[in-house]
Simulated assay, not measured.
Amino acid sequence: MTLSVRFTVRMTEDEKALLEEKASKLNVNSSEFVRCATFNYDPPSPQIQVASVDWKIYHLLGQVKFELNKIGTNVNQLAHDANLSVIMGSPMQSQLEELNEFSGCLNQLIGLMSEMRSQITDSTGVKPK
């Protein structure tokens, strides 16, 4: 469709701002929005842009998460042994508290990495390579 006729409409600044806001929500310019509203056209389908993802970094995050899980398992084993030592009368309470705090931090990091990887796949709509 060739647009060859110009038609001018006067409006307030507030109306213009509202028009531009509604048009931008549909990802069209103001003229296209007015034509769609006036002539009861369906607005064009918005083009979805998929973010570029560096899959090497994505997989590296997975490897780091795996290694953190292994470290967390070792810390949990140390905490278990420290608990047994405390039960048997060894004064390791401060080290035990540090191990438990460290274990909590590791679990939080693992959760954050999982969330980051999920957000990458959700935002792109693309499955990892």
Score class of each variant (00 low, 15 high):
residue 46 P to A: 09
residue 47 Q to F: 11
residue 105 C to H: 15
residue 38 T to C: 13
residue 10 R to F: 00
residue 115 E to S: 12
residue 96 L to S: 00
residue 111 G to M: 06
residue 11 M to W: 04
residue 32 E to M: 10
residue 117 R to M: 15
residue 3 L to A: 07
residue 126 V to H: 12
residue 112 L to D: 15
residue 51 A to E: 14
residue 119 Q to W: 09
residue 72 G to L: 12
residue 77 Q to A: 07
residue 94 S to Y: 10
residue 29 N to K: 02
residue 52 S to Q: 13
residue 66 F to H: 14
residue 25 K to Y: 04
residue 52 S to P: 05
residue 101 E to H: 09
residue 115 E to Y: 08
residue 104 G to T: 15
residue 63 Q to H: 10
residue 56 K to E: 13
residue 15 E to Q: 14
residue 39 F to A: 01
residue 98 E to A: 14
residue 23 A to N: 04
residue 100 N to R: 11
residue 33 F to V: 00
residue 85 S to V: 06
residue 92 M to P: 02
residue 4 S to C: 05
residue 78 L to Y: 11
residue 30 S to V: 05
residue 84 L to G: 00
residue 21 E to Q: 04
residue 8 T to K: 09
residue 68 L to A: 00
residue 122 D to C: 08
residue 58 Y to R: 03
residue 16 K to A: 07
residue 105 C to F: 12
residue 78 L to E: 08
residue 24 S to V: 02
residue 60 L to T: 14
residue 91 P to L: 05
residue 16 K to E: 09
residue 96 L to Q: 02
residue 95 Q to L: 10
residue 117 R to Q: 15
residue 48 I to D: 09
residue 46 P to F: 01
residue 13 E to R: 06
residue 46 P to R: 10
residue 35 R to N: 05
residue 71 I to W: 06
residue 122 D to R: 12
residue 75 V to F: 01
residue 4 S to W: 00
residue 92 M to K: 10
residue 7 F to A: 09
residue 122 D to Y: 08
residue 35 R to D: 02
residue 31 S to A: 11
residue 119 Q to V: 08
residue 69 N to G: 10
residue 45 S to K: 14
residue 14 D to N: 06
residue 12 T to L: 06
residue 75 V to P: 05
residue 117 R to D: 07
residue 14 D to Y: 03
residue 128 P to E: 03
residue 59 H to I: 04
residue 12 T to R: 06
residue 41 Y to V: 01
residue 18 L to D: 14
residue 45 S to P: 07
residue 52 S to A: 12
residue 31 S to K: 06
residue 129 K to V: 07
residue 54 D to T: 00
residue 56 K to D: 12
residue 45 S to Y: 00
residue 21 E to I: 03
residue 17 A to Q: 12
residue 32 E to Y: 02
residue 77 Q to N: 09
residue 48 I to W: 08
residue 126 V to Y: 08
residue 11 M to P: 01
residue 11 M to T: 05
residue 76 N to V: 00
residue 65 K to G: 01
residue 13 E to C: 01
residue 62 G to D: 01
residue 109 L to M: 14
residue 122 D to F: 09
residue 29 N to W: 00
residue 38 T to K: 08
residue 127 K to S: 15
residue 15 E to D: 12
residue 6 R to H: 01
residue 90 S to A: 13
residue 123 S to P: 00
residue 93 Q to E: 14
residue 67 E to N: 09
residue 117 R to L: 14
residue 85 S to P: 07
residue 107 N to H: 11
residue 54 D to Q: 03
residue 128 P to M: 00
residue 35 R to S: 04
residue 63 Q to A: 09
residue 98 E to V: 11
residue 27 N to F: 06
residue 103 S to Q: 15
residue 112 L to G: 06
residue 72 G to R: 15
